[in-house]
């Protein structure tokens, strides 16, 4: 009797698993800095296409890791990178369905001050905060690895502050880590993403929106991958990504769209 129950259960699980295999499935790889936005996009996409929620699977990791996984044959249909470089490499590697990446979002850089810094809490953060050197450490993402880090470096170069501030730099491997350093108060000042300070509802005096003209555009590109060649869901998602619905969601999180 007990054997029968277990057997039926296993049969049920197998059937479940294979039904998922048969149904149309969309696997999306997304740069983890986009997680908040993507969760909302995913819901809106499923709703608008009346899909089974299980038919869309989203994996989050750093763009570099996702790039390496895709090169090793990871089963993703669409890749939303946090930069424009990795999609370009995948196109060069002949791993994409088309040769045209789609710029789905443009990130904005902010200089953000930790709440822990009591002495100068009253004055709003501006370019002058940086010039006056009113901080212990300056957090930023690693310019070698992250577009936000590169942008931060370009801003410092533009202000001719690179040499002066270098000793105070602490680098996160990505912009989330730069954010952690400031959020915990270990670094009093840091270059982070507008989307991050928006997500955590920071007061407007606490950050300076760096003019976009001071650094290269932080463009995030998406590509359809070879694996998706016969997958209509992948095409539908790329179309959805360029729709007005998507753009409204993306912009509400502190990104710009083209």
């Amino acid at each position: 009797m007990r054997f029968k129950i277990i057997f039926t259960f296993i049969l049920f699980l197998t059937a479940q698993a294979s039904s998922q295999l048969c149904a149309q499935q969309l696997n999306i790889a997304v740069a983890s800095n986009f997680i908040n936005v993507m969760q909302e996009l995913e819901r809106a996409f499923i709703l608008s296409k009346k899909l089974n929620p299980q038919s869309v699977r989203v994996s989050y990791a750093s763009s570099g890791k996702l790039y390496a996984q895709i090169k090793q044959g990871a089963p993703f249909d669409v890749f939303l990178s946090a930069d424009s470089d990795k999609p370009q490499r995948l196109i060069a590697d002949n791993l994409t369905a088309g040769t045209q990446p789609y710029p789905y979002a443009v990130g904005r850089l902010v200089l953000w001050r930790s709440n822990n810094n009591r002495q100068i809490l009253q004055t709003p953060v501006t370019q002058r905060t940086l010039l006056n050197g009113e901080y212990n450490k300056l957090a930023m993402a690693n310019p070698k690895l992250a577009p936000y880090g590169l942008a931060a470096l370009q801003v410092l170069e533009k202000l001719k502050l690179e040499r002066k501030t270098k000793a105070d730099w602490v680098m996160g491997e990505n912009v989330s880590q730069a954010y952690q350093f400031v959020a915990t108060g270990n670094a009093e000042l840091g270059f982070v993403a507008l989307s991050q300070v928006k997500a955590s509802k920071q007061a407007e005096e606490a950050y300076w929106l760096v003019p976009a003209s001071m650094h290269e555009q932080i463009a995030q590109h998406a590509v359809t991958l070879k694996k998706a060649n016969n997958n209509p869901l992948a095409q539908a998602f790329m179309l959805f990504l360029s729709s007005q619905t998507s753009k409204t969601i993306i912009e509400s999180h502190g990104y710009e769209t083209d």
Binding site: G64, Y67, K137, N142, K144, L145, V170, M171, E173
Partner: peptide
């Protein structure tokens, strides 16, 4: 650590940076 050369940039972190930078 904050990945500071000579202060907190140890070998394992350095390797990670190389891998991530391809």
């Amino acid at each position: 650590g904050g990945n500071i050369p000579g202060e907190t940039q140890v070998v394992s972190v350095q390797i990670y940076e190389y891998v991530e930078a391809l």
